[in-house]
Amino acid sequence: MGLLENMQSETVSRLSLREPLTAAPSATVRQAVEIMREKNLGCIFVVDENRKPLGEFTEAMLVQILRENPAAMDEPLEQHAAKHWPWVKLTDPISDVLDSLETKNVRFLCVVDDLGQVVGLTGQKGLMEYIAEHFPGQVTVQRIGGQPYPLEREGA
């Protein structure tokens, strides 16, 4: 079975999902950045007491805040989080992840269960890892940064 068929038959649950970072609506942008920095993850969700997502905040939004109004670092995160964000269900085919990443030009995808609760995070890196698993002979043995061939001719 080829990669495309696998992507159509295997579900998002097959991807290595990251634990999503969450913060309460009252948390400040600064507090969210502290969590993101500690976990080295560029995305955090604002969730209510039932872990239902209310908004998404990413490192790209952080750059915009620093450009427009650095003082907003101490404002509530909820004010700066996106109210709409891309998501996939745990039971969706992996090909939906590829489609979303390509058409929506996003880095992260929120993974929700049937109840709409956030259960994980995937995105560009998760998909790359999945494809690399399929072609270990091509991908994982690559030598990075070395000269592909000698610049000078050898010999006389």
Binding site: E129, V139, T140
Partner: peptide, 15 residues
Amino acid sequence: YSSQSAAAALSVMAV
């Protein structure tokens, strides 16, 4: 390097 196989780019990202 631009002359490396496309797999090299994927390797950097995935691995």
